[in-house]
Amino acid sequence: MNLSYLLDPSHWDFSDGSIPTLIVSHLWYVLLSLVIGTAIALPIGLWIGHTGRGSFLAINAGNAGRSLPTLGLLMLMVTLLGLGLTPVLIALTVLVIPPVLTSAYAGIRNLDHRVVDAAKGVGMRPWQVLTKVELPMALPVLMSGFRSAALQVVATATVAAAVGLNGLGRLLIDGLAVNDYSRVLAGAIVVAVLAVLLDLVLAQVQRWIVSPGLSKR
């Protein structure tokens, strides 16, 4: 194993193409696609779970989304839209939607219906039932969907480099282009470490926002 590229201090300054700047741009793509994907998938998943209407959509969207090849989708988008951030975000957002939508749907669907019944029975309006009872109770399931989406996007955001953007994919693609395997290895290691760190952060967030009443026995 050749760690020379990873350990070279000159690759850790903030000049163009250095590892820290690639991490920042990588995280930027990840963040944008998570935000956009969640903004689309969460309301739809909650709505389907809450009303029970269109369950087939929630289930099939999950399966269809998982089987789409991201690189192929990205190339298609570039052909249609030209180069730039948009095709990348579309391709990554498509990865985010299935796990978030499916987990939001499943989280709401599998709630103890007696509790939801009690929420209506004490006089909550439908919106209050959703936000004060269903959503907080579904959070553990929802967060696990979100975390798996985040992991997938961190790994897959490397495709951005294939269409001329930055991100940690630069190390992989440029390294391969000049047969610099030390650089490729550096890219792979940083992506993996980033994924682990992000998941740790999200696990902590989950501990903050999920009521202890849902895990305590």
Binding site: R114, G123, V133
Partner: peptide, 19 residues
């Protein structure tokens, strides 16, 4: 909703909000 807020409602297994 207004009607139900004025009527106490107790069910089997209590139906408490676990969170």
């Amino acid at each position: 909703a207004v009607l139900r807020r004025g009527i106490g409602y107790v069910i089997q297994h209590a139906g408490l909000f676990p969170h």
